[in-house]
């Protein structure tokens, strides 16, 4: 979620609450001869409020599981998650008087610090990365569709290259799923039409000799890049290097092949964008792999800590 001016109220309220809690803590620390204690009335209040904030922050996940329940807008929950979750750290520190205490409470404090830190890190990522992705990946697609789009790009590139250079001798890849409900394929009790095969008319725009550089480049450089676009060291994976590679090819090829070359260059650019999107997507959501389990552990151990504190 982008932290912008729309968070002003939450920010003011959080700062006010923190100031109030800080003042109370300072007063308690000054007035109590043994310093602030977690078991004191104020210390317990800090603990209860801090735990309540943590619990509220933790309820965001179940809230997301029931999106149509009219239990408050999801963005309100998210804002509460961010600000109250953040506030819970100073409140718990006030609760413990900035001491980590025994083993369990130390573990809890460490967990809370990690959860808060990972949350802040995640919030920062989600603040900056969407804008970056919007700017750098104009050809963005749905993340789950990336593999499918890549397969289509490969097929398109093969088609362009073979139209320019003749048969490439590539082994046929796995068939793309086809829509069998097409009118011409439907069966039932009525007639069907055979699947239409594209007319096998090769368009040889240039001679074999003239297109040799393109053919060689496609088979040795571009096709491997399309098959494994994640390879960081590949020259086509870098926009500047790719530009110079294509510039050099353009110089060596006759003008009749330039259109095909431009299409292939565009395909490489789209591949790079899909790569970028995939990487940014992992960053956008990858931090949750740390944040969520730690939060769960924190809530569980927090509950144990509360039970033990009440019992003993």
């Amino acid at each position: 979620m982008r932290i912008d001016h729309t968070h002003k109220k939450w920010f003011i309220a959080s700062v006010a609450l923190l100031a109030l809690a800080g003042a109370a803590y300072a007063w308690s620390a000054w007035s109590s001869p043994h310093g602030p204690k977690g078991g004191s009335a104020l210390g317990l209040t800090f603990g209860i409020v801090g735990s309540a904030f943590m619990l509220f922050a933790g309820l965001l996940a179940p809230r997301k599981k029931v999106p149509v329940w009219r239990a408050g807008r999801a963005q309100t929950w998210m804002r509460g998650h961010l600000w109250l979750g953040l506030l819970s750290l100073p409140l718990i520190l006030f609760h413990g008087g900035f001491h980590f205490g025994g083993t369990l409470s130390t573990v809890l404090m460490v967990l809370l610090i990690f959860v808060t830190a990972s949350g802040v890190f995640g919030a920062a990522l989600q603040h900056y990365l969407p804008e970056l992705m919007t700017r750098e990946v104009p050809l963005e697609t749905i993340f789950e569709e990336i593999d499918h789009v890549r397969a289509q790009l490969r097929a398109e590139a093969d088609q362009i290259a073979s139209a320019a250079c003749g048969s490439l001798g590539l082994a046929a890849g796995p068939e793309e799923p086809t829509d069998t409900s097409d009118s011409r394929l439907a069966g039932g009790t009525t007639a069907y039409k055979q699947p239409t095969a594209a007319a096998s008319v090769a368009v040889l725009a240039v001679t074999e000799e003239e297109c040799a550089p393109l053919r060689s480049f496609y088979l040795r450089e571009m096709r491997p890049f399309l098959e494994n676009p994640g390879a960081r060291s590949h020259p086509l994976g870098d926009a500047a290097q790719a530009r110079s590679v294509f510039q050099e090819l353009r110089r060596r090829l006759p003008p009749a092949a330039h259109d095909a070359l431009k299409d292939l260059e565009d395909i490489c650019e789209e591949e790079r964008q899909l790569n970028r999107q995939a990487r940014l997507h992992y960053w956008l959501h990858g931090w949750l792999l740390l944040h969520v389990p730690l939060s769960l552990a924190l809530l569980l151990l927090g509950a144990v800590h509360a039970a033990m504190a009440l019992r003993y």
Binding site: M1, P67, V68, A74, Q126, P130, E131, T134, F143, H281
Partner: peptide, 18 residues
């Protein structure tokens, strides 16, 4: 708003759920 959207697909899931 793509500058806010984290591509979490909560909107799509909500639509399907509804």
């Amino acid at each position: 708003n793509l500058e806010n959207c984290t591509r979490c697909d909560a909107c799509v899931r909500a639509c399907a759920d509804a």
